[in-house]
Nucleic acid binder design. Structure first.
Length: 282
DNA sequence: AAACTTACCTGGTGGC
DNA sequence: TGCCACCAGGTAAGTT
């Protein structure tokens, strides 16, 4: 599932193929994503130059002089680079962006469940970061503003479990279900703990854990970067070995206690009863 | 008004 | 072999 690391790895893989290059054509085979792909998208992008490829949370921002193409991968989406020409499109290959110039390539959006999005934000509407989907997002995990003090302040009124607060996206962006469990394991915090009960010290541990887990995931993904470029590379399986996620019943990699699976807000949480506590240190 | 909860979108799959 | 309930995750909308 694409969370922040997967999106960042995607950004790094695509950037060399798109930054500074012009769009020759956009082929939309299926516009029914989470929201309809704008009908005029192809006309709007044709011949235009992509200045930069940026990321905000789990969104990719394709910066043009006249606006920004906003893409989100949802649960099952992926972008793949096909240098030169692309193979015939499969059932779930919804959009191609054809790049002309010295490095011709086709960027193909595949999304079986179609929970992803592809939206156009014209420059005249202001900066894309003020788009309704982006405006309320919390800080980036690698932003210096995301620190212990920030976590402490933004959890004082939150009585919900820290796992769910972490997932909500306003404390910090980019942490989905997988990395929420992994980060809490790394920080030694019981996912059921009410957020406002976090001590300052544990806020520090949590912020550091989120940064570390995401950093490592990006690094691991970095080694599989060429899978994005290859025509038939397997979809990235970026987290080489999760400590807790999807490991119910299997022994904790630290203490051998069987990993527990619980449901919070109708989604699965995995944790170690021994390594992760409601209070105290560890 | 902010915090919290729930439903929704779709396709793959595991169990019978 | 075929069917079907269920699960996945991020977001919007609804509720307290």
């Amino acid at each position: 599932m694409p969370e922040l690391p997967e999106v960042e790895v995607t950004r790094r893989a695509l950037a060399p193929f798109v930054e500074g290059e012009r769009v020759q054509a956009v082929v939309v085979r299926e516009r029914r994503l989470r929201w309809p792909v704008p009908a005029r998208l192809a006309a709007q992008l044709k011949g235009q130059r992509i200045e930069r490829l940026e990321r905000r949370g789990k969104y990719l921002l394709w910066r043009f002089a006249h606006g920004t193409l906003i893409s989100h991968l949802g649960m099952s989406g992926s972008w793949r680079v096909h240098p030169g020409a692309a193979p015939p499109a499969g059932a779930h290959d919804h959009v191609d962006i054809v790049i002309a110039g010295r490095k011709p390539s086709v960027l193909r959006l595949t999304d079986p469940r179609r929970f992803g999005a592809l939206l156009w934000h014209p420059a005249r509407s202001g900066d894309a970061r003020r788009h309704p989907l982006l405006s309320h997002l919390g800080p980036e995990p690698f932003d210096p503003r995301f620190d212990a003090e920030h976590v402490f302040r933004h959890t004082r009124q939150r009585r919900a479990a820290i796992k769910q607060v972490l997932l909500a996206g306003d404390l910090v962006v980019g942490v989905g279900n997988i990395y929420a469990s992994e980060s809490l394991f790394r920080a030694g915090i019981d996912p059921r703990l009410a957020a406002h009960r976090l001590t300052r010290a544990r806020c520090e541990r949590l912020a550091a854990a989120v940064r570390a887990v995401l950093t490592e995931a990006i690094e691991v993904g970095g080694s599989t970067l060429r899978d994005f470029v290859g025509a038939d590379g397997a979809e990235g399986c970026f987290m080489l070995e999760a400590f807790v996620y999807d490991r119910a019943g299997q022994p904790c990699r630290i203490c051998r206690t069987p990993i527990r699976r619980i449901v919070q807000g109708s989604r699965a949480t995995y944790f170690c009863l021994r390594c992760q506590t409601r209070a105290g240190r560890s």
